[in-house]
């Protein structure tokens, strides 16, 4: 069982702070969504896990071992990024061969099957692949690696909606056949939110929220009704978003128990909407809080 533990992790590139005091624990064979705005530190976290560089301070461990320069840990980690995954000069088949050589649990048959699914030409060079096909190659390597920790960071640039859907099917398939921790970072939250068992949201280099997908759904509430009634019921509560029009007000609450909503209409937001409410800058400017 995989356990990732970050304690006060900080990563600084020259002047820019990418991760600032991140503390989070991820464990178990789950599909985990890692969300955050651009520059929130997602990619940095994932690259730290894959040993691309070391953190500036704090401790980051996978199963209690630091991944940096640690082969036994890293051969069980497969990170697929949106670009620059592979040597450009290589042909598709070379990349598959090399990956087969590296990952101890590589499934060759599955890889070949996936090549057919995505209609890749194995003799083509990586640099001549279209964006979509390059992404497909990354997806194939990630899925066939069977690495105990498989990480996809925006793996489908240029991939059309149909192939993306195929990817989700495949992700579930490989997860079921070979349960392992899969971290998926994406901006297309609506498309994948139902695949997540857990979700972590990073914001400005820190952990903003980490909970099960179920709890995200359970813990929030949208109340709509006349302005007075809404204000009365929600004053002093943890409001993450509010807007009003024509005397009607809509308020999104997080982590608040409202047992009697009176005449107000109660509804739910999607994970994507919640994400936007939690991280959008405007919320702060309006003076409403987004502290959880």
């Amino acid at each position: 069982m995989m356990e990732i533990k970050a304690v006060n992790v900080r990563k600084q590139y020259q002047k820019e702070v990418a991760l600032d005091d991140l503390t989070i624990t991820l464990e178990g064979n789950k599909i985990i969504g890692l969300l955050g705005k651009n520059g929130a530190g997602k990619t940095t976290l994932m690259r730290l896990l894959a040993g691309h560089f070391s953190n500036s301070s704090g401790q980051l461990t996978i199963d209690n071992k630091s991944p940096f320069n640690n082969y036994p840990v890293l051969r069980e980690v497969c990170l697929i990024m949106e670009s620059n995954n592979f040597h450009e000069k290589f042909r598709v088949k070379d990349i598959l061969n090399i990956s087969a050589n590296f990952y101890p649990n590589w499934d060759n048959e599955y890889a070949n099957h996936l090549v057919n699914v995505f209609r890749l030409n194995i003799n083509q060079k990586a640099k001549t692949l279209s964006k979509g096909m390059y992404s497909a190659l990354g997806i194939i390597v990630g899925l066939a690696s069977n690495a105990s920790l498989t990480i996809f960071d925006e793996p489908y640039i240029g991939l059309d909606a149909s192939f993306r859907s195929t990817f989700y099917d495949l992700l579930l398939e490989t997860y079921q056949n070979n349960p392992r921790m899969i971290i998926l970072s994406t901006h297309l939250i609506d498309e994948v939110s139902r695949l997540f068992e857990e979700v972590a949201i990073l914001h400005e280099g820190k952990l903003m929220l980490h909970d099960t997908a179920d709890n995200f759904e359970r813990k929030h509430l949208i109340l709509t009704g006349s302005k007075e009634e809404v204000d009365q019921l929600t004053s002093g509560r943890n409001i993450i978003h509010s807007s009003s029009i024509m005397g009607q007000k809509t308020v999104v609450l997080y982590n608040e128990d409202i047992t009697d909503s009176g005449n107000l209409k109660v509804s739910k937001a999607s994970l994507q909407e919640l994400f936007v409410y939690l991280t959008k800058e405007e919320v702060n400017k309006n003076g409403t809080t987004n502290q959880i």
């Binding site: 040993g51 691309h52 320069n69 640690n70 082969y71 890293l74 592979f86 040597h87 990956s99 590296f102």
Partner: peptide, 13 residues
């Protein structure tokens, strides 16, 4: 060419 792409796989420096 090879340093980043080999280390990306996960062998040590």
């Amino acid at each position: 060419e090879t340093f980043p792409s080999i280390i990306k796989y996960g062998t040590t420096r």
